[in-house]
């Protein structure tokens, strides 16, 4: 088989951010076919789990799951089950039912036609029923945001692998996964911090996801994109968390767990074979994680 050193890279606006896909070691035609397949996968997952799209599984759940069981796609079910795992293991620090808080802060639009959420509802009110159906005990709004993005990256890598590239990487706005031999060096960039130190992650066959307490240096106000464990305000307003894990969905979800729990998240990180690097104003850079 002929080998190609050529790298093919493409970028599309998807999942509310820029999705960049790179493959190496494939003929140009096959490389574009592989990237197309990966982008199609991401588009599918985006359509299923978009909070804004009224036709998505997430929107249907928010509208009707408190009244009757809702059938969802296998992908959506998978992400919900993973999310439930993270909620259980972090004692609710990770919770996909915080969407009302994000809507209140203007980070998400209010879902159309959905009943007003019960203020006491949390992740335990999401029930997994027979035949992969989902029901809600109380009216609630879920947002799968980050974990769905990480899951989309995982699925995109699986789609690329079917074409057997020597190397592949998928980066969805900082949630990224690399496959193939050799380290890839990734710059970790906490926004708004001066650049005396440059943190990098070297990853081979793994994922990196980062979360910043603030959306960007341009965003005004104190409300970051994360919600505190007691929903009493934004979590980690000044904190930057970067997590490396084999799966990108895990890495993304764990950034929220680390942000909420700090060093106490170490045992959870070890379960997912993950490590974290955090940066905040008070402590500077810190590594969190423990070995099994």
């Amino acid at each position: 088989m002929q080998s190609f050193s050529r790298t093919v890279e493409r970028c599309r606006p998807l999942l509310g951010t820029f999705v960049r896909i790179r493959v190496e070691g494939l003929a140009p035609d096959r490389a574009h076919a592989a990237i197309d397949a990966a982008l199609d996968t991401i588009t599918t997952i985006h359509r299923l789990m978009s909070f804004r799209d009224a036709g998505s599984d997430v929107s249907r759940l928010n509208r009707v799951a408190c009244r009757e069981p809702v059938s969802v796609d296998q992908h959506t079910l998978e992400v919900l089950m993973r999310a439930a795992g993270f909620s259980r293991i972090s004692d609710g620090r990770f919770d996909v039912t915080v969407a009302p808080e994000l809507v209140a802060r203007g980070l998400l639009p209010a879902p159309e036609g959905a009943p007003m959420p019960d203020a006491k509802a949390d992740w335990r009110d999401i029930v997994f029923l027979e035949n992969g159906k989902i029901g809600f005990h109380k009216p609630l709004w879920i947002d799968l945001g980050g974990i769905a993005k990480g899951y989309a990256v995982d699925c995109a890598i699986a789609a690329l692998r079917a074409f057997s590239p020597t190397k592949a990487s998928v980066n969805a706005g900082g949630d990224l996964r690399v496959a193939g031999e050799g380290y890839e060096r990734i710059r970790l960039l906490p926004d708004g911090r001066d650049d005396k130190l440059a943190a990098v992650a070297d990853v081979e066959n793994g994922s990196v996801a980062s979360s910043c307490g603030r959306m960007s240096r341009k965003a005004s106000g104190t409300g970051g994109p994360h919600v505190g464990p007691h929903r009493d305000g934004p979590a980690g307003a000044w904190q930057f968390v970067s997590v490396m894990a084999p799966h990108c969905a895990d890495a993304d979800a764990l950034t929220k767990v680390v942000m909420a729990m700090g060093e106490e998240s170490a045992p959870i990180l070890s379960i997912y074979a993950a490590g974290a690097l955090t940066c905040d104003q008070r402590f500077g850079w810190r590594g969190i994680g423990s070995f099994p």
Binding site: R20, N171, R187, L188, S216
Partner: peptide, 15 residues
């Protein structure tokens, strides 16, 4: 960094 960095992980950029 200039040569080796092919990816960045930080605050999500909006599209």
């Amino acid at each position: 960094l200039d040569k080796d960095i092919q990816n960045i992980s930080g605050a999500t950029l909006s599209s």
